[in-house]
């Protein structure tokens, strides 16, 4: 009756809404937690104390060096055809502008292809990208490489339509990458509304001039930590099921959805197992990553440190795609392991969350997956996830306690059973 006990405790019993309430206290107390910030340091200390108070085992901090980028003051004032304050959020790693800003005419393009065709017009301009949202993976290329592609043709700055399918004049930030062989130019995201407005203006032949000011600065890498806690295995303590989410966030909103909730349902899994008096045969290790938003920096350093034990990792799990109404899990692994996971998920019939779809993924577990370790991510209703992602809208108001209970039930069931089975998950 283990799964029944897990469901009863988290969905109907004394632990219901606990992960939501813990997350609310955490985010209301700490706020957002960008890499290198004092807030992130406070968050790590908070969690270190909380995990110890929860009487989890081997609570420890693993040192990590993380990027330290600070946004500073920023603005974009349209000077022609009319005075208008364009809503912006600078993109992570962007350089700043001179104090007086950069004033330049705008070139609006709808795609990289159009930019290439109109490359001769880009020199000395601020390139505005008004790319359509196709899906996150495809469209995020504009955020990641928009500045480099524009600078290659002599642009002085780039403004990129936020990577979201829906907007109420909400800019969405995120990391962007420079290239060593192209001059660095300031880059920020703008709202869907402003991108479309400038595209309309440009299509009429209207000249657009913007003064862009960004006070962004990059400091030397900062000290940070991956936060680790365990329930030690009873029979194979050296073997590990890793369950995780990331503690850092962007510097807007509260980082409640991305990825406070993922981190907190992972913590909840260990809490529930402990509350039920269970101890799996293998060690269940909680890792709350740092520096995920800068490209999985904490996860990369964890992998370098622990890959020597890769043969002992039965399963790696990461929740970083929301904790909305769950459908089941996504799984990366061989056919036999996939069949095992299907059998595990059948145990969750009482809450009707049984699907096992391919492509378990997550930035922080990607190194392990590439090396052949089976991996799981949550499969939940992400239809609104990118509405709030990396924006001021990522707050507790996005979260639903009942949905978090269901996600916690899935997360706990999968992690506990895989950690408790007689054999590790088979690998191809």
């Amino acid at each position: 009756g283990v799964v029944k006990d897990i469901i009863n405790l988290t969905v109907y019993g004394k632990a219901q809404n606990r992960s939501y309430n813990r997350l609310a206290l955490f985010t209301d107390t700490i706020g957002n937690r960008v890499s290198g910030s004092e807030n992130l340091n406070k968050a790590i200390k908070y969690m270190y104390n909380a995990l110890q108070s929860d009487k989890l085992e081997n609570v420890n901090l693993e040192p990590v060096k993380v990027p330290h980028w600070v946004r500073g003051e920023e603005s974009a004032m349209m000077l022609e055809p009319r005075n208008y304050s364009v809503v912006i959020l600078g993109l992570g790693s962007s350089i700043g502008t001179p104090p007086e800003g950069i004033t330049a005419e705008v070139l609006v393009v709808a795609s990289f292809d159009e930019l290439e065709k109109r490359a001769a017009e880009a020199k000395g301009k601020i390139v505005v990208y008004n790319q359509a949202f196709v899906n996150y993976g495809e469209t995020v290329q504009y955020r990641s490489f928009g500045a480099v592609r524009a600078a290659k043709h002599g642009a002085v700055a780039s403004l990129i339509r936020s990577i979201t399918p829906f907007s109420i004049s909400s800019p969405h930030t995120g990391w962007q990458d420079y290239s060593s062989d192209v001059p660095k130019i300031p880059t920020a995201c703008i709202t869907v509304e402003d991108a479309e407005m400038m595209a309309r203006m440009a299509s009429r032949g209207t000249k657009i001039v913007i003064n862009l000011k960004m006070g962004a600065k990059t400091y030397p890498d900062a000290d940070s930590f991956n936060t680790v806690a365990e329930i030690t295995g009873s029979k194979f303590p050296e073997q590990v099921v890793l369950i995780s989410g990331h503690l850092d966030s962007w510097d807007v909103g509260q980082g409640a959805m991305d990825d406070g909730a993922g981190a907190f349902i992972s913590w909840e899994a260990l809490s529930l197992i402990k509350d039920l008096g269970l101890r799996p045969k293998r060690t269940l290790r909680l890792v709350l990553w740092t520096g995920e938003e800068q490209g999985g920096v904490g996860a990369s350093q964890y992998y370098q440190l622990h890959k020597v034990n890769i043969s002992k990792y039965s399963l790696v799990m990461e929740s970083d795609i929301g904790t909305f109404a769950p459908f089941g899990i996504r799984f990366t692994g061989g056919d036999k392991a996939h069949a095992v996971m299907k059998a595990v998920m059948q145990l969750l019939k009482p809450i009707n969350v049984t699907s096992v779809d391919p492509y378990g993924e997550g930035t922080d577990i990607s190194y392990w997956l590439q090396a052949g370790v089976p991996g799981v991510s949550l499969n939940d209703d992400i239809s609104k996830y990118f509405w709030f992602h990396h924006s001021n809208g990522d707050t507790m108001s996005v979260q639903d306690p009942v949905q978090m209970n269901l996600c916690a039930a899935v997360w706990t069931t999968v992690s506990y059973i895989v950690a408790d089975m007689e054999e590790m998950l088979p690998r191809n």
Binding site: G1, S314, V373, P374, R427
Partner: peptide, 25 residues
């Protein structure tokens, strides 16, 4: 590069594993 990935489990038949998992329900 990681050490060679252990083959993990796989000694037991899927039927055996499924029966074991069913025991958690």
């Amino acid at each position: 590069k990681p050490m060679q990935v252990h083959s993990g489990g796989g000694e037991r038949s899927l039927e055996d594993i499924s029966m074991e998992i069913a025991g958690y329900s």
